[in-house]
């Protein structure tokens, strides 16, 4: 059985590198295969051919990846459009999980303390005067807020903050800052702070979320 399988699909060619075979054998087979393909290509005088590569349940190291790509790049007539695999590193998986899940945080953030969360946060703790809660994603507030809340840190303008912000010092989203003492907005627990089309901090209610952030709204529907 061969370790490198080439199949034609509607949208191009798919090159499967079998995870059961050794990498050395795959490399030799690839070398032979492309030498042959290049020969055929020149005879047929076809245009540039693109390949997708699937490594199945094998995760190529950076070096192996380079070897495969380098081998194919020798031929100007061929190009790799995608390199995919069924597997990812645990650390990568964990990072993705962190990013996607809503963290529940019940900390007491005191003056001078700063809590930074990867992803979204449902905050049920307290932020004292001078404390800062930062999240790379959205912030949903149920707790008492006297300090500073910052969503979408450092530059995610899509982020929103849901909750009563009337007692907060400052609200920050991405690089926009609002000082609540200057913003006479009537907040409720269903208020939403977001960045509008003019890149300014604006407020709405949860009922507007469908128009303000359709993506987030749909994501909530799925959960």
């Amino acid at each position: 059985m061969k370790d490198v399988v080439l199949k034609g699909h509607q949208d191009g060619y798919l090159l499967t590198l079998k995870a059961t075979g050794s990498f050395e054998r795959i490399l030799t087979e690839l070398t032979d295969l492309f030498a042959q393909l290049n020969h055929d290509q020149q005879v047929a005088k076809k245009d540039l051919v693109q390949f997708k590569i699937d490594t199945e349940n094998r995760l190529l190291t950076a070096q192996q990846r380079q070897q495969v790509l380098h081998l194919i790049e020798q031929y100007p007539a061929f190009r790799v459009s995608e390199l995919k695999s069924n597997v990812i590193l645990k650390t990568e998986a964990q990072r993705e999980k962190e990013q996607d899940s809503v963290h529940i945080n019940r900390a007491t953030i005191r003056s001078g303390q700063e809590v930074t969360v990867e992803g979204d946060v449902l905050f049920v703790g307290q932020i004292h005067h001078g404390g800062i809660l930062k999240a790379t994603g959205h912030i949903f507030l149920l707790g008492d807020v006297a300090g500073i809340v910052q969503a979408g840190f450092p530059d995610n303008e899509e982020a929103v903050i849901v909750g009563d912000l009337s007692t907060a010092f400052q609200v920050r989203i991405a690089d926009q800052v609002a000082i609540m003492a200057d913003d006479q907005h009537a907040f409720t627990a269903r208020s939403v702070a977001y960045i509008n089309d003019l890149h300014l901090l604006d407020y709405g209610t949860l009922a507007d979320l469908k128009t303000i952030r359709p993506k987030l709204y749909n994501k909530m529907g799925e959960a």
């Binding site: 001078g112 005067h129 001078g130 010092f169 400052q170 800052v177 000082i179 609540m180 003492a181």
Partner: peptide, 17 residues
């Protein structure tokens, strides 16, 4: 540094960026 107070006495604590 670390225990600032002057901003509080002046009522400017909420404006610090």
């Amino acid at each position: 540094i670390g225990l600032r107070n002057l901003d509080v006495v002046l009522g400017l604590e909420n404006r610090i960026i």
